[in-house]
């Protein structure tokens, strides 16, 4: 299935899927309305949830809106669902 991922800021290493996505879906990454890459989704991902746009290693920051929104608790590959099971709040 085709579909879209929204990148909010050039610094972001995650983007939001704009429709429910399934493993193997090749989605177009949009920034400022323009397509800039294709990412293959690895997990079933609900609409508005995040997938990695770049590899994120354990303890590296997850970046959205160009700001730090959390820390990876495990290595995350491109296309993987990024959520509470692999990212935690920076303040503990």
């Amino acid at each position: 299935m085709s579909g879209k991922i929204l990148r909010m800021n050039p610094k972001d290493n995650v983007g939001m899927v704009l429709q429910d996505a399934n493993p193997g879906d090749a989605l177009t990454v949009l920034y400022e309305g323009q397509p800039e890459a294709t990412v293959t989704v690895k997990d079933a991902t609900d609409i508005y949830h995040k997938v990695a746009l770049a590899p994120i290693k354990t303890d590296e920051y997850v970046v959205k809106y160009g700001e730090l929104i959390g820390v990876a608790t495990q290595d995350i590959a491109v296309g993987e669902h990024v959520h509470v099971f692999n990212v935690r709040s920076i303040k503990v």
Partner: peptide, 27 residues
């Protein structure tokens, strides 16, 4: 407050951390 956020409903909507929720607001 921190423990209660993001709420289960927020998480279902795709928000993973309090920072992410709050950043959406202050943007």
């Amino acid at each position: 407050v921190r423990g209660a956020n993001p709420s289960p409903g927020n998480q279902k909507g795709g928000l993973s951390t309090l920072e992410e929720k709050a950043l959406g607001g202050i943007s």
